[in-house]
Amino acid sequence: MRVLLLTGSHPRHLYVVNKLAELGIVAAHVMEVREAFVPQPPANLEEIDRLNFIRHFADRDEAEQRHFVGHEKVQLEIPTLNVSLAQLNSEDTVKWIASQSFDIAISYGVHKLSNELLNVLPEHSWNIHGGLSPWYKGNTTLFWPFFMLRPNWAGMTIHRLSARLDAGDIVHHSVPNLDYGDKLHDVACKAVIQGATDLSTILTTTSIDQIVYNPQKGNGKLWVGNDWMPQHLRFVYNQYNNDIVDQFLDGKIPRIDPPIISALRNEG
């Protein structure tokens, strides 16, 4: 199975690229060069929120450097087109993709793809979403499970690419194991790693005609960028001191498990 990847440029995105490239199945790669990874706090925040903002994004950077060490770049030679956000859906990008030979397209960490670009992708085209759909669609979806005191709902969804955001039929849910000492960003990184592992297995053990697509059902939420505010960090860092996983594993937080869709139920 030959794969076209469309990804962002952060270490979490390149980790997935490198893991699939190691299998020799990546035919081509479109990489959207993303924004700076450690943002500056907004002006006029209260001191508690400014410090939490700095802590949150510094911790994210530290966790990603630790979990994704060596994945600051693509490690193997792959035909690659580097694009900016403005170039992502350009005519040149569409033509370049159309000139490549591949069986399946997978996006991860890129902005919304245009209908013109989607039209040159094959029937089997997937997106890797950082969040369990349909409950956590949209933005900041590995943060909200912690805010909702459901750290075991922090995971990844592989779903069919569609014009609607994170709404395509589901191929697979992936959730990491939680361990004592895991902080919010550790779980987010472990979710990416588990998702890459599961995707590698799916692509190397399943033929395209065996793929099962599951329509998204049930009540979910599309979390938009404006839903998140720096003040939400008070709950994670000041109320719980970022030890939500430990309290969850100790049984101090009630456990409700997500209804997982797995493409690997028959594995092993």
Rank of each mutant, 00 (worst) to 15 (best):
M1T: 13
L6Y: 04
A21E: 13
G24V: 09
P42A: 04
L45W: 06
D49Y: 12
N52I: 01
H56K: 05
D61W: 03
D61R: 13
H67G: 00
F68A: 05
E72K: 02
V74L: 08
I78Q: 04
N82K: 13
S84Y: 03
L85C: 04
A86S: 14
Q87P: 02
L88K: 02
E91T: 14
Q100T: 02
I104L: 14
S107D: 02
L117D: 05
N119L: 11
N119S: 15
V120I: 15
I128V: 15
L132S: 11
S133T: 15
S133E: 11
P134L: 10
W135P: 00
T141F: 03
W153Y: 07
M156V: 14
T157L: 03
L161H: 01
A163W: 00
R164Y: 00
I170D: 01
H173S: 07
D179Y: 14
Y180D: 02
G181T: 06
D186W: 04
I208P: 02
V212Y: 01
Y213K: 11
K217H: 12
K221N: 11
G225C: 04
L233I: 08
Q247W: 04
F248I: 05
L249H: 10
I256Y: 13
D257E: 15
E267D: 10
G268L: 14
G268C: 06
